[in-house]
């Protein structure tokens, strides 16, 4: 079997299936916008240390699910756990600190901060970030240590030569890279990327894919929303498919590509049956 991730080899490709070592579990997560069931999830587990892609047609509820999981939106019902800890009612900034960091569909660089400041601002548990700590605390050695980590990360993402430029002067692709590098400064266990490849040229797509694979190899869990099936096939260990707010299929990428329910969801039920 050509499975990229051994721990998932024996998991049955069924919606809501249990995983051997899940880092993230969600139960009964619901979000309604008026009469619209934007998200209506029975059960979802994400395996630790894998790349899981979240796919589905437009309006399937993928970004809403991201918002719910990261605390940017509140569910009408349901609960979810990260590393076994409940996240219901926890504000988004605490969820980020507890180890799950997201990026946005439209990149959000902090334009009038330098690239290095963008990186440094993302570090957590920093005594200099509290009011009294800033005035009276000893934080310069923390800054120096963080700067080394940030510089190493910028080098890895090929942005070290830009470190003193304003983030607003970067190109679109560089901003994507910066956003990913910056998210890593929070030292997350789970990194959630909302369409990282949208509007990116093919060369940069390859580079981003390479970085995402590296993240997994460093032991991070990556969840990402993507539309390009080639990309999904190339790097995913597991694929989760949503349609109309529900989880309709999950499994290894090669299974998903031939799954009739998925094809129906994308193309409609009565797509051309070959005579």
């Amino acid at each position: 079997m050509l499975d990229k991730h051994p721990t998932l080899a024996n998991v049955a490709p069924e919606p809501g299936v249990g995983k051997p070592n899940p880092i993230l579990e969600a139960d009964g997560l619901k979000r309604f916008f008026g009469g619209l069931h934007a998200v209506d999830l029975e059960h979802l587990e994400v395996e630790r240390g894998t790349i899981t892609s979240l796919i589905g047609p437009n309006g399937a509820g993928k970004t809403t699910l991201f918002n719910l999981l990261t605390g940017f939106d509140r569910p009408d019902a349901g609960e979810w756990h990260l590393n076994g800890g409940p996240l219901v009612g926890i504000p988004s900034f605490r969820i980020a600190r507890s180890g799950m960091v997201r990026t946005f569909q439209l990149t959000r660089s902090l334009a009038r901060l330098t690239v290095m400041e963008n990186m440094m601002v993302a570090t957590k548990d920093h005594v200099g970030e509290s009011f009294w700590g800033a005035l009276f605390g000893r934080w310069r050695h923390i800054e120096a240590a963080n700067e080394k980590i940030a510089l190493a990360s910028l080098e890895r993402f090929g942005l070290d030569h830009m470190k003193d430029e304003y983030a607003g002067s970067l190109s679109g692709g560089q901003r994507k890279l910066l956003e990913m590098a910056r998210a890593l400064m929070v030292a997350p266990d789970v990194i959630m990327l909302d369409e990282p490849m949208a509007g990116v040229n093919p060369a940069l797509t390859q580079s981003l894919l390479h970085h995402i694979t590296n993240l997994r190899d460093d032991g991070k869990t990556v969840i990402f929303i993507e539309h390009d099936m080639d990309v999904v096939q190339e790097i995913s260990d597991w694929v989760v498919v949503m349609a109309q707010g529900k989880l309709i299929a999950e499994g290894p990428p090669e299974h998903i590509a031939s799954n009739a329910t998925v094809i129906d969801a994308y193309l409609g039920r009565h797509h051309g049956e070959v005579p």
Binding site: S92, R94, V101, L113
Partner: peptide, 17 residues
């Protein structure tokens, strides 16, 4: 620095904890 990050983009600052 955190203050200026908030000035630039609140959601980004939230997402960074």
């Amino acid at each position: 620095r955190a203050m200026r990050a908030i000035r630039e983009d609140e959601d980004a600052a939230l997402s960074l904890g």
